[in-house]
Simulated assay, not measured.
Amino acid sequence: MSRYLVDKFLYTVDRDPELVERYRTDPHGTVTWWEAERANAVLNCHTGEASTWLRFTDEERDALASHDHVRLFALGAHPFLTLTLFIAMFERDHAEPMAYQKQYGLRLAHFSLPYPDIAT
C-alpha cells in the first residue's frame, strides 16, 4: 500500500475544481489518467522533475475509482483528505446541512481504536 500516493491523489484532486468535477463524474477515467500523468510528478514542484516508480495497487485503484472512503480509510488513507474531497463532490447531493459529513462518519463507525495507521 502506498499511502503516500493515495494521499497525494486526494490532495491534488481536491485542490483543482476541474479535477474534483472530473473525479465525481468519471472516477475510473480520472484515476487512470492521474496515475499515468500525475502520480510521478514531484508534489508542488513546477520544474518538470518526476519519478518513475509510483503506482497504485489494484486495491487502491479500485477503492479510489469506486469512491469507497471506508475502504480507503481501512487502507490507511488520511481521513481528512478523503473527507474534504468527498464533501466537495457529494455535499451538494444532500439538502440537510452536514448530511454528507454525518453519513461519512456513520459509514466509519464500525472502526474502533486503534484506527488504521495514517502515517506516510
Rank of each mutant, 00 (worst) to 15 (best):
D117A: 00
M1A: 08
Y4Q: 04
A74K: 07
C45M: 12
L64G: 00
H78Q: 05
T32S: 14
C45H: 15
G76R: 00
V31H: 07
G48W: 05
A41E: 15
D16Q: 09
P116K: 03
L19F: 14
P116S: 00
W34R: 02
L83S: 05
L108T: 04
Y115D: 09
T25I: 14
E35A: 09
A36E: 13
D7L: 01
C45Q: 15
H78P: 05
R22S: 14
R107M: 07
M89D: 09
R61Q: 06
Y104T: 00
R55D: 04
P97S: 05
A74Y: 03
A41S: 14
R92D: 13
F73N: 00
E21V: 10
L75D: 03
T52G: 11
A95E: 14
L113D: 13
L54T: 12
F80R: 11
P79S: 04
D16R: 09
D93H: 15
A95V: 13
A119L: 08
Q103C: 10
H67W: 05
V42E: 11
A39K: 04
D68K: 04
D68C: 05
G76P: 02
R22I: 08
H28W: 14
G48V: 03
S2V: 08
T52W: 13
E37R: 10
V42M: 11
S51V: 15
D14P: 09
A39D: 08
R92Q: 14
E18Q: 13
W53T: 15
V6P: 05
E37A: 12
W53H: 15
P79F: 08
A63G: 00
G48S: 04
E35F: 07
E18K: 14
T120L: 12
H46C: 10
P17W: 02
F86Q: 03
V13D: 01
I87E: 10
L81F: 06
D93S: 13
A119C: 07
E49L: 12
W34P: 01
L19M: 12
Q101P: 08
V31S: 06
R3D: 02
A63W: 02
G48A: 06
S2G: 10
R55V: 11
Q101K: 08
L81R: 05
I87L: 08
V6R: 00
M1Y: 08
S2Q: 06
P27F: 01
L43R: 13
R61E: 10
E59Y: 07
E60G: 01
Y23Q: 02
I87P: 06
W53E: 15
F9M: 00
V31M: 08
D26I: 11
A41W: 14
G76L: 00
R61M: 08
E96N: 05
P97G: 02
E21I: 08
S51T: 15
L64P: 01
K8V: 03
A63C: 03
T12C: 04
T30L: 07
E60V: 06
A95I: 08
D117S: 00
T12D: 06
A63M: 05
H67L: 02
E35I: 13
Y23F: 06
